[in-house]
Nucleic acid binder design. Structure first.
Length: 870
DNA sequence: ATACATACC
DNA sequence: TACTGGTATGTAT
């Protein structure tokens, strides 16, 4: 408690390197002595020098902050104070003390497991890890200042007798599963934070617990403390309590009568214990069961929110628990004396900055809020304010989807380009394997490099499409590596670490973007990134595959909301070409998947994707070149072009993809190709509703067949479509669709709920379908046909957009950053700011901008554009 | 979007 | 001899 600051000052600087005794079992140590040893072991090393540098950076940050502070006037402070008070009142109003949150944390987890399995270690100082780095240490070792995140060789200096045991993650994982089973009995939605730690919401359990008989709260000691494998715990359960009760002790288990535990069990009463109904008893019971099951102890904190529970679990560590009563008074008292460093989220640097302002406990935090609100970012001071009020999360957030995946490796100095490259490849292989396991694909590849001076660099590239395979990842990573090497040359990159990360995952719905049809082209990046999963969920419900029943089919128009939503996108937009490229790759991936029996993908998702645009989806091979081969060649990105990982490069270049019908045109002659496109366009606008796509089969042929390109009648599409896309008319369209008894999927404001409406006569009456783009009533009641029609209408929109707006950017060498397509044109003037996840106001101001050119022109430009880029 | 820093286990 | 590896998020440009 009276820690850090003193020793840090004694050392003069390098608070980063000094012993961090903010850890259970490290009280009352001779910090000065320990720090001296640490410093002696480190001094002069490259690591030390780097730490010194970083320390100075932090010091500069602090200096800057102090300067800022000096310029604050009383008046400003007063104003800030008022704001803080308003905010405080607001937060106070939202204070919720009704939940019972528990944070459970295994004691010295890895070390405890190793000690359990190797009794000789029990009375020795030991740690898990290596000479380079320790994961954790037992309490014996902590007395010497040996702790997690300390390199083993330094630990050895602190404690020459230290035994270092290598990590055995499989074992820890197995134990982890055991304890999680127990967690689930108390909160099926518990949130694991790591292998040894979790948050649980006990509120519901406690409520149920009140009506439980003693037998349901009775748990036995393990019969023999030495027989680890004996699963006496798995006793038959009372049938009526099957789902709710924890593992039960029964009076008459046929197996074994309750014997008093032998040696290890010291419980006074004998072989079992009845736990009470209070929170403390429930938590004690949970810890008891953990210990009986795993022979390992856990500590727990009980509090009205996660922030406090976390702190509480540390309070009586090891093998203890602490409950903070659910009253405002108790919470405020508790928080007053709480060192800020104990709060999760306030680390070394924040602590130091706060210390510089004279803030070390949470009471100071509250007292200085006005100042803090002026010196720190909004998110930061809001967090501080909440902490000072003892507020925190009162619900256990469901485990969110991962946002990135990475692999990195430290090694002896590596300076040879060749070696670096092969290492990079290895990392990519590992990463690709991991990605495959989880069926993920991501658009951003990041290369991480740490040189021998411990300087870390990251270099990232975001692709217009998602990647997952070794070759794809490597082609990007090696490029980033090469660039970096070129930048440094003639000096070599002297590396000690390399890592590769993938992020910007596409959601499962993005893997079948065709479901969004051409709208996907119009969307900004927003829809493709994590923040809009809700949007995607709705697309997941579009069953447009032939498999699906008619009543499940959904008019394309119902995706309008998706479009609206994207129009509010605040994220950088991708060029049309990027998205086109992405789309094609994804299409190909779909094909590839289909051919492979849907690799880890939901089969119905794949089929629906395939059918959506009707054209490229197929299980039939068009030729000998597989989909994945094509993916590397059709539209070669700059990165891919250099990567040359392909296997089938020749055939592809002879085909071009028609932007209207999406068929592949087997020609390299641009005139031929343009003729095809023109034909498609004129077909689309002149022919009546002849187009039929009974199933995907009809779309498999690669031949240019304009009959198959024919669409339902489209008149008067030109020029006005973009208005339609953004105007209130879209709302009317939606309504008209609904009232016309078509099953409609509506996405509510937060884009999370999918409401399926299935009006009366959906099955027997022919609905009237009106194309939302061209406003024409469609004769066909086939939704597949209808969707296709809408697609084509939308394609026209795109082409007009291109014609109208890319004229200036079309000759640019790169369209990577071109916003020509989106260019605000499809975007409403009003663009939502921040992380808005809902659109409460459905109306988007119509945007009226340049009109498109005629088809011919458009296509020429469109095509030239593709040529110049790809 | 990218780079870097902070934080947690 | 020797100072991790994986993920998320905030800050700044």
């Amino acid at each position: 408690m009276e820690n850090g600051a003193a020793s840090t000052k004694a050392e003069g600087f390098l608070s980063r390197m000094a012993l961090n005794d903010n850890k259970a079992g490290m009280e009352g140590l001779d910090r000065d002595k320990i720090n001296k040893i640490i410093m002696e072991s480190s001094k002069g090393s490259r690591f030390y020098e780097n730490e010194l540098k970083r320390e100075q950076q932090v010091n500069q940050r602090i200096e800057k902050m102090m300067l800022q502070k000096a310029q604050i006037t009383d008046q400003q402070l007063k104003k800030a104070q008022a704001q803080v008070e308003r905010m405080t009142a607001e937060l106070e109003r939202s204070r919720d003390l009704s939940r019972v949150i528990v944070h459970v944390d295994m004691d010295a987890f890895y070390a405890a497991v190793e000690m359990r399995d190797c009794p000789e270690l029990k009375d020795k100082p030991m740690a898990v890890g290596s000479m380079s780095m320790l994961s954790t240490s037992n309490y014996h070792a902590r007395k010497y200042g040996v702790r997690a995140a300390m390199p083993g060789f330094i630990a050895k200096k602190l404690c020459p007798n230290l035994v270092i045991v290598p990590t055995n993650f499989d074992k820890y994982r197995a134990v982890c599963n055991e304890i999680r089973e127990i967690f689930a009995d108390y909160d099926p939605h518990f949130q694991p934070m790591s292998l040894d730690e979790a948050y649980l919401d006990f509120t519901d359990h406690l409520q149920q617990r009140q009506s439980w008989p003693d037998s349901s709260r009775t748990h036995r000691f393990r019969a023999s403390s030495t027989a680890t494998d004996e699963e006496q715990i798995e006793l038959p359960q009372e049938p009526e309590m099957k789902d709710l009760s924890p593992v039960l002790f029964e009076d008459s288990p046929s197996s074994s009568p309750c014997l008093p535990g032998s040696e290890g069990v010291s419980a006074a009463g004998g072989a079992f214990e009845v736990f009470g109904k209070s929170v403390e008893e429930a938590v004690r019971e949970m810890r008891f069961r953990i210990e009986q099951k795993t022979m390992l102890t856990a500590s727990a904190g009980i509090a009205p929110n996660t922030m406090l529970a976390k702190v509480c679990s540390d309070k009586n560590k090891p093998n203890g628990q602490y409950r903070l009563p659910s009253t405002r008074e108790a919470v405020m008292d508790f928080v007053q004396n709480l060192p800020v460093r104990k709060v999760s989220g306030i680390g070394k640097v924040s602590e130091k900055m706060l210390n510089a302002l004279g803030i070390s406990s949470c009471s100071h935090l509250g007292q200085q809020m006005a100042l803090l609100s002026m010196l720190f970012s909004e998110t930061a001071w809001h967090h501080f304010l909440q902490v000072s009020l003892g507020l925190g999360s009162t619900y256990i957030p469901r485990h969110e989807e991962r946002k990135s995946m990475s692999t990195e490796r430290t090694f002896r100095e590596l300076s040879e380009a060749e070696e670096q490259l092969s290492l990079c490849r290895e990392l990519c292989e590992d990463l690709a394997q991991d990605m495959k396991k989880e069926g993920l694909k991501g658009k951003t590849v990041t290369l991480k490099l740490k040189n021998v001076n411990f300087e870390v660099k990251t270099r990232a590239l975001t692709l217009p499409y998602a990647v997952a395979t070794v070759d794809e990842i490597f082609s990007v990573a090696k490029d980033l590596l090469k660039t970096e090497r070129d930048n440094e040359s003639p000096q070599p990159l002297r590396l000690r670490l390399m890592g590769v990360r993938i992020s910007a995952f596409v959601t499962s719905d993005d893997k079948k973007p065709l479901q969004k049809s051409i709208i996907g082209f119009l969307q900004t990046g927003k829809t493709d990134s994590g923040g809009s999963q809700g949007t995607h969920q709705k697309f997941a419900c579009f069953p447009l595959a032939q498999k699906c029943q008619r009543q499940d089919e959904v008019p394309r128009w119902s995706k309008q909301r998706g479009l609206e939503r994207s129009q509010t996108g605040e994220e950088p937009q991708q060029s049309f070409f990027q998205r086109a490229h992405a789309k094609r790759l994804q299409l190909q991936a779909v094909n590839a998947n289909t051919e492979e029996e849907g690799h880890g993908e939901n089969a119905s998702e794949i089929t629906s994707t395939g059918t959506q645009n009707g054209v490229e989806s197929s299980t039939k091979a068009h030729d000998n070149c597989t989909a994945s081969d094509r993916s590397e060649n059709d539209f070669v990105s700059p990165v891919e072009a250099r990567a040359s990982t392909s296997g089938c490069g020749s055939a592809v270049s002879e085909r071009l993809t028609c932007p209207v019908c999406f068929r592949q045109v087997e020609t390299t002659d641009l005139n031929d190709f343009n003729r095809h496109i023109d034909q498609c366009l004129s077909d689309a606008s002149s022919k009546p509703n002849q187009y039929t796509v009974s199933d995907t089969e009809s779309d498999l042929d690669l031949e240019i067949d304009h009959k198959e390109c024919e669409v339902m009648e489209i008149r008067a599409v030109q020029c006005e479509v973009e208005e339609d896309l953004t105007s209130n008319r879209t709302q009317e369209d939606q309504r008209s669709l609904k009232s016309d008894s078509i099953q409609t999927v509506l996405i509510n404001g937060d884009n999370k709920t999918v409401t399926s409406q299935q009006p009366q006569s959906c099955n027997d009456k022919s609905p009237v379908l009106i194309c939302p783009i061209c406003q024409l009533t469609q004769d066909s009641d086939d939704l597949i046909i209808f969707n296709h029609h809408v697609d084509l209408c939308l394609n026209r929109v795109v082409l007009h957009e291109l014609g109208g707006q890319t004229s200036s950017s079309i000759n640019l060498p790169s369209v990577t950053n071109s916003k020509a397509i989106d260019g605000g044109r499809f975007l409403p003037a009003q663009v939502s700011k921040g992380k808005t996840k809902r659109r409460d106001s459905p109306s988007s101001p119509p945007s009226k901008k340049a009109k498109g050119l005629g088809p011919r022109n458009t296509i020429d430009k469109f095509f030239r554009c593709f040529q110049s880029i790809y």
